[in-house]
Design a binder for these strands. Structure first.
Length: 147
DNA sequence: CATGCTCCTG
DNA sequence: CAGGAGCATG
């Protein structure tokens, strides 16, 4: 699900886990889960962005996340270990944009500001897509829901 | 006071 | 990932 939504609301999650009896713990645990997902995601982005800078990359167009890029492999291995489904193109676009945002920010020296990542988070949080119906409850294979 | 999020650990 | 601290919102 992370490939579609980086910042799912608790109400949205509830509509996709109809067979789960939500209580405070379950809900906060799921929210926490996505928070952890984001951490990994952003850490990878920053890592590759800095690496690109060290490699002398100057054009953002050279920072597109394709299905055969190292960054994609790292993310796919984390969220889609068994290659249970095809990652949506939209995610590649969001990932590319995220990488470019980090790249530009670091390159501009904005990382000296303690809260330099906040603006990037704000941008990315607005790029969530709708989750396909197939992910909903009962008929959905567990492999798909796991990430 | 309840939520939700980040940051830091283990 | 899970836990907990600390901060922001409403």
């Amino acid at each position: 699900m992370f490939f579609f939504t980086r910042y799912p609301s608790s109400t949205l999650l509830k509509t996709y886990f109809l067979d789960v009896q939500f209580n405070r713990c379950i809900t906060s645990q799921l929210i926490k889960w996505f928070s952890n997902f984001r951490e990994f995601y952003y850490i990878q982005m920053e890592k590759f962005a800095r690496q690109a800078i060290l490699e002398g990359v100057t054009d953002c167009k050279d920072l597109m996340v394709s299905r055969n890029s190292e960054l994609f492999r790292a993310l796919n291995m984390h969220y889609n270990k068994g290659n249970d489904f095809e990652v949506p193109d939209r995610f590649l676009e969001v990932a590319s944009l995220t990488l470019q945002e980090f790249f530009s920010a670091v390159k501009a020296g904005k990382d000296s500001d303690p809260s330099w990542k906040k603006p990037i988070y704000k941008i990315i949080s607005k790029l969530d897509s709708d989750i396909p119906e197939v992910f909903k409850s009962s008929s959905c294979p567990q492999e798909l829901l796991q990430s």
